Simulated assay, not measured.
Amino acid sequence: MKEIDVSGGSYTYKVYIDESTSNFNNALKNNDIQINNKFFIITDHQVHSIYRDKIDELFEEVNYKVLVIPSGEKNKNFNTIENIYKFLMENACDRSSTLVAFGGGIVGDLVGYVAATYMRGMKYISIPTTIISMVDSSIGGKVGYNFENIKNVIGTFYTPIFVFISIDFLRTLPNKEFINGIAEVIKYGIIKEKQLLYYLEHNLKSILSLDKDKLLYIIEKSLRIKHEVVSVDFKDKDYRNILNFGHTIGHGIEIVSNHGVAHGYAVALGMLVELKLSQYKLNFKKEDYDYIYYLMNSIGFPTKYKVDNMDLFMYAIKHDKKTENNQIKFSLVEEIGISKTGVVIDESLIEKAMEESIERRYL
């Protein structure tokens, strides 16, 4: 079992990365979790339908209750938060209890927010079950929910006691959902480490076949890159913005598609647009753009998308958390591995970048 020590100004916790779930009880003991206290496990319908028996197995020695919430981005809202609060209150959850987020990024964000706010803060454990939550949302401390059709606009920063990652969970993940998560791995390669892109390219067949050694490598490498960034700027004041690469455009695509385009696929499209913006503003090399375009195609990402409702798309972008004083700011890339935050982009340039990247076949 691999361990990553995650620490910053006022927090420290461990991320465990393992081939199976057999060491989960050891993780509990290593973190002084009192197993005689109550555990409240929050998962969604899709995950619960697959892992109900696994939950029973992992928590057989403790006093626990399970709440199953609706699946999907449309349910990442305050109604779901409120239902979790009610569940906790009805079952006498108190500050000695432990919450458990068992699922993908949506479950993790919601449970983290509840843990941060219920009784002004309580313990929680994160058990991510998708590649996107393993390599990205399970660490970093961002928790929250969507409001008024804007993604993650309500939230705070709050960290778990520990994160337990088992690549066993990826065995039941549909191929489309697995590829969805690889978008974040590509992002880390673009913003921080070109070698990670080469690793994906040269080990693609093994990774898509869920080779355990290759999976362990890309998960650990991604988490170490994210930790390196977050430890410098936990509250996302400046440098951490580089992790937003591809997300401003990506979130707009999620909104206009009514979440029909999954997060990773939307971010992949967003990265292509934002690389084109990087060409305009920071002289990002065309050959590097073409390489990343080729890599995304090889993995199975869509590289074309037509925005039908530009007003709604721009509304989402203008309400992105990086927008300040009505200026739309992006984190862009000077070259692979070197990023720049706070680049002001005009609306007309966004439309041009989209026309010359993901909308090319519609011209």
Rank of each mutant, 00 (worst) to 15 (best):
residue 107 V to D: 07
residue 91 N to E: 04
residue 188 Y to V: 03
residue 199 Y to I: 04
residue 101 A to F: 07
residue 118 Y to K: 07
residue 112 G to S: 00
residue 104 G to Q: 02
residue 142 K to G: 03
residue 152 N to Q: 06
residue 120 R to D: 09
residue 209 S to V: 11
residue 203 N to G: 04
residue 111 V to H: 02
residue 206 S to Q: 15
residue 138 S to G: 04
residue 155 G to N: 08
residue 167 I to K: 01
residue 84 I to A: 01
residue 85 Y to T: 05
residue 74 K to A: 13
residue 100 V to I: 04
residue 148 E to L: 15
residue 198 Y to N: 15
residue 202 H to M: 15
residue 162 F to E: 02
residue 141 G to Y: 05
residue 144 G to A: 05
residue 172 T to V: 12
residue 137 S to L: 06
residue 149 N to E: 14
residue 169 F to D: 04
residue 183 A to V: 05
residue 187 K to S: 09
residue 110 L to R: 04
residue 158 Y to D: 06
residue 199 Y to P: 07
residue 101 A to D: 00
residue 209 S to E: 02
residue 176 K to I: 11
residue 176 K to V: 10
residue 209 S to D: 13
residue 113 Y to G: 07
residue 98 T to Q: 13
residue 164 F to S: 07
residue 83 N to V: 04
residue 206 S to Y: 13
residue 73 E to N: 06
residue 112 G to T: 00
residue 183 A to R: 11
residue 146 N to R: 13
residue 105 G to W: 04
residue 161 I to F: 07
residue 78 F to I: 10
residue 135 V to E: 01
residue 92 A to G: 14
residue 165 I to E: 04
residue 144 G to M: 08
residue 120 R to E: 09
residue 143 V to T: 03
residue 106 I to F: 02
residue 128 P to M: 02
residue 97 S to R: 03
residue 126 S to N: 09
residue 75 N to T: 04
residue 83 N to E: 08
residue 163 V to L: 05
residue 205 K to E: 09
residue 91 N to L: 07
residue 152 N to A: 09
residue 88 L to Q: 00
residue 81 I to R: 00
residue 74 K to S: 12
residue 117 T to V: 13
residue 174 P to A: 08
residue 109 D to Q: 08
residue 103 G to K: 06
residue 182 I to M: 10
residue 117 T to G: 15
residue 190 I to S: 12
residue 93 C to K: 02
residue 139 I to M: 04
residue 154 I to G: 07
residue 139 I to R: 07
residue 167 I to F: 03
residue 90 E to N: 12
residue 183 A to W: 05
residue 138 S to Q: 00
residue 160 P to V: 03
residue 108 G to K: 10
residue 107 V to L: 11
residue 78 F to W: 12
residue 76 K to G: 03
residue 107 V to Y: 08
residue 156 T to G: 08
residue 154 I to A: 14
residue 198 Y to V: 14
residue 151 K to P: 11
residue 201 E to L: 13
residue 151 K to E: 07
residue 184 E to T: 14
residue 200 L to Y: 01
residue 121 G to N: 05
residue 114 V to D: 01
residue 132 I to S: 08
residue 145 Y to K: 06
residue 83 N to F: 05
residue 177 E to I: 04
residue 114 V to R: 00
residue 205 K to N: 03
residue 123 K to D: 05
